[in-house]
Design a protein around this nucleic acid. Structure first.
Lengths: 214, 214
DNA sequence: ACTATGAATTCTGAATACAAAACACAGGAG
DNA sequence: CTCCTGTGTTTTGTATTCAGAATTCATAGT
């Protein structure tokens, strides 16, 4: 097997994002660099590099002399991020090859119908949802756009653990995904894009109440 | 006056972007950290932090063990970036307060008509163009979106010096800006958004020939 | 009792030092 | 002559150290 030869800062970044998913960090709290570096078993240098990357993605904030802190969550920001991702994914759909979209539409439909039931664990559901969205935009030739979507979605990870346990909207989510897939199968990319945007907006509204008011 | 108390990495980032505008760096070339740090009069640590930030914005690329290099320019990437910014600015317009847009429309129109003539220096033209676009999206309440647009536009700076001296499309650019302003004054935000997207696409097509084929 | 001041402490920001990987080039085997 | 290999050099990646800013806490003055 090829051993892991990526820079430490990337591994650290992913580790921190993983912990974020699990809700290990309280939003709004300051980060103690020496403590966190010791905990991760690395020095402050690559840790700070990872923190700077995350700050660039909006996951963290930094203030001169006071270091980094996890950006506090807010309904306003959640709404902003969802709006952006919705716009970007719709754009990606628009810049995709229509033939390819028709090709993957059946798989998208299958995934949407296989949506895990409410018994499933939260991270399984998230994984499944991510998989669907990743496949959806996989036909986009605009590589920078794909990277950008990934980056913006990193900011949404801070909200993941807040949304855990709310299984009511699962059917809605699955149904909306089905609709997008069916529109793609019919070849109506514009309508699919609109349905996708609606899916994001609806999902956002469904989740909004679970975010503490700032 | 308040003295400059921003972190070095930010000042370095701006200095590098400024040099990029002036075409001081050849695209695709490797960066020697010690040499550049010495030239800037700083140590490698904040320099690397700035480089990592710029890599996150797509201005630089990094490879394990080989450091950073200015990402090579290509028509493909230029097209991708323009598509993204077009989509994001149109989204920003869509998320703006219509009343505010009508309010600033006259100023937008005035700016568009005051477009500097072809005698003006390149950076004056760019400054003017930036000012117009900044004002256009200034009514957007989505702060994250504004930041994102700024970040993606940083990637476009690598192309600025390539586009210098091409004064033919100036009237086209000005005319298209006028049209957007007039549509906004009429209160037709959707049409203005479409005109804005067209402006980006047209501008991109006009510039495309000046970018060396990869 | 409360505020202001200042020293001690903690932490970040930046510089330097060290380790390891990539590169360049010379020399030898085929 | 070509290709491989090994050694020396350069450059990056990471760790450590140093300096200075922010915070805390105690104390003195009102």
């Amino acid at each position: 097997m090829p051993i892991d030869r990526r820079p430490l800062r990337e591994q650290i970044r992913e580790e921190l994002l993983g912990r974020l998913d699990r809700g290990d960090f309280a939003a709004g709290t300051d980060i103690n660099e020496v403590a966190l570096a010791a905990e991760l078993g690395v020095s402050r240098t690559p840790l700070r590099e990872a923190l700077i990357t995350l700050a660039g993605e909006g996951v963290l904030e930094s203030t001169q002399g006071r270091g980094f802190r996890f950006a506090p969550v807010s309904r306003k920001e959640f709404r902003e991020l969802c709006e952006i991702v919705a716009g970007l994914e719709a754009l990606a759909l628009d810049r995709s090859d229509p033939a390819y979209l028709r090709e993957i539409a059946p798989e998208l439909l299958r995934l949407a119908r296989d949506f895990p039931d409410r018994i499933a664990e939260q991270h399984v559901i998230e994984r499944h949802d991510d998989e669907w969205h990743d496949l959806l935009v996989s036909g986009c030739r605009n590589e920078r756009l794909i990277d950008l979507i990934t980056s913006v979605k990193a900011g949404l990870r801070r909200y993941a653990h807040l949304l855990a346990g709310d299984d009511t909207p699962l059917e809605r989510e699955a149904a909306e995904h089905c609709q997008v897939a069916e529109l793609l199968m019919a070849g109506d990319r514009a309508a699919a894009g609109q349905a996708l945007r609606d899916n994001w907006v609806n999902g956002m509204e469904r989740m909004m109440s679970r975010i503490p008011a700032s």
